[in-house]
Simulated scan of single mutants.
Amino acid sequence: MSALRAGRALAERMMVDHVIIRRITGERTDRITGKVTPLTEAVYAGKCKLQSYEGYEQSRDTAGVQYTVQRLSIHLPVGAYRINVGDVAEIVTSTIDPLLVGRQLRLVSEAPFKTFATAYRVFVDYIAD
């Protein structure tokens, strides 16, 4: 067990960014404009690490255009919070890359839970501005 604790401590030392993860709890409609705005609550605020992989082209039937999708995952401390698909993470500080600040990511999988996990590695989709 001491090896697991050491692995988790090392994984958390690599989590140099900070994130707020919000869960959609409902919606509000503006009576004048009709604009629907989601209501959210913060379910986690703390450290994380954003990890990306190679880009790949993916075909879509959206006006016959191919575009690049970036494969991403967010690493969170084990036991940080109960992950729900659809939660939205926003990077609030980044000590190494200031361009990450403000980026929003939609969690698309639950953490792949396992007994000897050193971190929760959760797949995410980048939410374009």
Rank of each mutant, 00 (worst) to 15 (best):
R103M: 08
Y67M: 12
V36H: 03
L105Y: 11
C48T: 03
V78L: 06
T29Q: 08
Q58D: 07
D97S: 07
F123K: 10
A9E: 05
Y53C: 07
D129A: 14
T95L: 09
A80C: 04
E54F: 09
V78M: 04
K35E: 15
L107S: 02
I74A: 07
M15Y: 00
P38H: 02
C48Q: 00
Q104N: 08
P38L: 01
D97L: 11
G102P: 03
I20N: 07
R28Q: 14
V101L: 05
V108P: 01
V108F: 09
V36K: 05
S52D: 07
C48G: 01
I32A: 13
G26D: 03
S109Q: 13
Y120S: 04
A11D: 00
Y67T: 12
S109D: 15
D61Y: 06
K47A: 12
V108D: 12
L76F: 10
V16Y: 07
G7H: 02
S109M: 14
S2P: 06
H75I: 03
A45T: 12
Y44F: 10
V43N: 02
A119D: 05
G102V: 01
G64A: 04
I24R: 12
D129S: 14
G34W: 00
I91C: 12
D97T: 08
Y120F: 10
C48P: 00
F123L: 11
L105K: 04
Y53N: 09
I21D: 02
G26V: 00
G46S: 02
Y67R: 11
G34Q: 00
A63S: 14
K114H: 10
Y53P: 01
R31G: 11
R121P: 10
V43S: 04
Y81T: 09
D61G: 12
V43F: 04
M15F: 00
E57N: 12
I24V: 14
L39Q: 09
R60G: 12
A89G: 06
I74F: 04
V108C: 13
S109G: 11
S73V: 15
V108Q: 15
R103T: 07
C48H: 01
A117W: 04
V65I: 11
T68L: 14
P77Q: 03
V92D: 05
S73H: 15
S109N: 14
L100A: 09
L99A: 13
E12N: 13
F113T: 09
M1S: 11
I32L: 10
V88L: 06
S59V: 14
R5G: 01
E41L: 06
L76E: 02
T37I: 05
V108T: 15
V122A: 02
A45V: 08
K47P: 02
